[in-house]
């Protein structure tokens, strides 16, 4: 087990350090890259817990898609760092307040588990032994039965967000030249060219 413990501390340590660097790095692109490092280490922690399915999904969804778009946007921004630093003190109280609330809530969750250990089992469903089913199957078994409404609700939230994004960005530009493949295919020699008889020395 000693190797697992060492691996845990390495992953956890790097994750925390990377998380700190996300807010400490001067360059926003570096921040995003540190965020990706933090995701990676979180995936490593999942693997250590035997949840390799979650680890891979974390990498595919967050690192492979979400962070790419993040990086995409951040790379194109031209940020004035001095201006960014100026507002720091102004926003600090709000930031500190949010941090404090999150900290309190985390303490509440962890505290409840310690005070009343039976609470954790209220929401839990029986976990089949790892030797019998892979953890993709184990998740599938509860996700589409016990949690099917939550699953559907999450799907609806994402659908609404997606339609919202499309509606916000969809504009018809009348002067934009767009390729219309049916129009191109429907063209014939008769509609495409016009043959003119040009007399010598006359021009058109």
């Amino acid at each position: 087990m000693i190797v697992a413990t060492i691996a845990f501390y390495i992953f956890a340590g790097v994750a925390i350090a990377a998380g700190f660097m996300v807010i400490a790095a001067r360059n926003p692109v570096h921040s995003v890259l540190f965020l990706i490092l933090a995701f990676f280490n979180a995936a490593g922690l999942f693997v250590l817990m035997g949840a390799e399915f979650l680890a891979m999904i974390l990498i595919i969804v967050y690192v492979g898609a979400v962070a790419v778009l993040f990086l995409f946007v951040v790379m194109m921004l031209d940020i004035d760092f001095a201006e960014l630093r100026e507002g720091f003190l102004q926003y600090m109280p709000i930031g500190a307040l949010i941090g404090l609330i999150v900290l309190l809530e985390l303490l509440l969750v962890a505290g409840t588990w310690t005070l009343a250990p039976e609470v954790a089992s209220l929401a839990a469903s029986p976990i089949p032994p790892m030797a019998e089913v892979t953890n993709a199957e184990a998740i599938g078994q509860v996700m589409y039965t016990q949690y099917v409404y939550f699953f559907q609700a999450a799907g609806m939230v994402l659908l609404v967000a997606m339609i919202g994004a499309i509606v916000l960005t969809l504009r018809k530009k009348p002067d934009a030249q767009r390729q219309s493949i049916p129009d191109q295919v429907a063209r014939t020699a008769e509609t495409a060219i016009e043959i003119k008889k040009v007399e010598p020395g006359q021009g058109l």
Binding site: E52, A55, M56, I57, I59, I60, G64, V68, A136
Partner: peptide, 25 residues
Amino acid sequence: DLNVGLLYVLAFSSLGVYGIMMGGW
């Protein structure tokens, strides 16, 4: 011999974009 080998390949091939994005930037 991973149980999630398919996802592993998908994850690593989707990460290939980072090298190119970082290099380009």
